[in-house]
Nucleic acid binder design. Structure first.
Lengths: 157, 157
DNA sequence: CGCAATTCAATTGCGCACAACTCAATGGCG
DNA sequence: CGCCATTGAGTTGTGCGCAATTGAATTGCG
């Protein structure tokens, strides 16, 4: 395998550019397609991610949702309030632990799942890749993420 | 190859979840590492992307920068103002076409390139992947992005 | 038991992404 | 030439992502 120390700074700069450009671009391209697909469900893409989690487990503490989606309360609190205002979700303090807030689907929130049924198929079709390649992509992304998360990068060169 | 029509909605939902979760997570994981690496350069990640473009071509209209990074003026205008306030960049109306604004590196902006020299190496090292896998990842991302961009998804199911 | 450290949600503040819009400059066409 | 569509930058408003902080509840340890 080719190792980083063997390459020139100039080459690395180019590869770095390509990787971060393409990851950024891909992320925003996905966002754009989801935006269109989700528009008439009244959901944003991050809201859809939360709904996906709740369609698996219809009741979860904010903490757990954050762990699954890698999001903190600073992002989730206002987002969940919007979902609550839209009537898709209920939020209440746990009786066992008053620090914790439990988020639960309403019947309206559950019902939305049916209307979202064709979103995955349409999204995956729009990627234009065979399922095997998508699985490969997912695998690489997960490996990269795990490595980056555990990298503990030092602040200054 | 395995085609979408042959799969059950339930399977597709799972794959869709995995793909969009992992892409999202990867994008944010990259952002987190860049944030640390760029902190003492005083740059955010999107600002770094703009600087990368300007380090290639030290003078470009806003329009061109937007094309390279897939960003519109709504994002770039305030960002470029911040780079200008930081002294890294100058902005001035083109004489040929008064609608266009040309962005040019200042000497301070050029000088920053040296201090950013180790960022790519450190970033790529943090990914924990061999260069071949990174190239593979980049290739998949670019194919997906191209397909998504040309998909022209219809609004409602 | 009592107090300090930890945990969890919420809030504040800043920057980015994007849609919708404004406004001026330009270019094309009759 | 005169008019109108187009182009390019900027502004506004909404929502997300994250750091930093707050405040209350819980845990743990002496």
């Amino acid at each position: 395998m080719t190792t980083l120390p063997g390459m020139a700074d100039e080459e690395l700069l180019r590869l770095d550019q390509q990787i971060c450009f393409s990851l950024n671009a891909a992320s925003r391209a996905f966002g754009g397609v989801y935006r269109v697909l989700l528009r008439d469900l009244g959901l944003t893409y991050p809201q859809y991610l939360v709904m996906l989690v709740l369609w698996e487990d219809r009741e979860l503490p904010v903490k757990r949702i954050g762990e699954r989606l890698r999001l903190d309360s600073g992002t989730l609190s206002p987002l969940l309030k919007r979902l609550e205002a839209a009537g898709l979700v209920r939020r209440e303090r746990s009786a066992q632990d008053e620090r914790s807030v439990t988020v639960a689907l309403t019947s309206e929130g559950s019902a939305l799942r049916e209307r979202a049924g064709q979103v995955p198929r349409r999204l995956l079709a729009a990627t234009g890749l065979p399922v095997e390649d998508l699985a490969e992509l997912r695998g690489l992304l997960e490996r990269v993420t795990a490595a980056l998360d555990s990298a503990a990068v030092e602040p200054a060169p």
